[in-house]
């Protein structure tokens, strides 16, 4: 199971903080994708999106593809995308797919 938690913040709702929990795997990707895309399409002036994945236990390549797609959509809208606090196992998957640079992965502590 993978659950999505969403917080809107910022002065006029230009920030979106999401957090993903559980396992983002093949069978879950479609539902999660629909949920995430609905969120960004429902707001007109979204500027900063942060996805917190500290509680994400596991991801497979379908999950990675989802994050890549999401990131690319937000940047195309002129927003910024950050992915924070992946655990060790998840980070390894990003490294294997060589997308850790593209997804602007941060520990979440050193930089705000």
């Amino acid at each position: 199971m993978c659950s999505v938690e969403i917080n809107r913040a910022g002065d006029d709702g230009d920030r979106l903080d999401m957090s993903l929990r559980g396992k983002l795997v093949r069978g879950e990707v479609k539902a999660v994708m629909e949920r995430m895309l609905r969120e960004i399409h429902s707001s007109s002036n979204l500027k900063h999106v942060t996805v917190n994945i500290s509680s994400l236990e596991w991801i497979d390549t379908a999950g990675v593809a989802l994050l890549v797609l999401f990131c690319q959509r937000i940047r195309a809208m002129g927003g910024t995308f950050r992915l924070v606090k992946p655990n060790e196992k998840v980070l390894k998957v990003f490294k294997l797919a060589q997308v850790e640079g593209f997804l602007s992965i941060e520990d979440g502590n050193d930089r705000a």
């Binding site: 093949r26 990707v29 479609k30 994708m33 989802l66 797609l69």
Partner: peptide, 10 residues
């Protein structure tokens, strides 16, 4: 799978 086309392409 039921993955959307864009995801499969990536």
């Amino acid at each position: 799978t039921n993955l959307p086309k864009e995801i499969i392409e990536i």
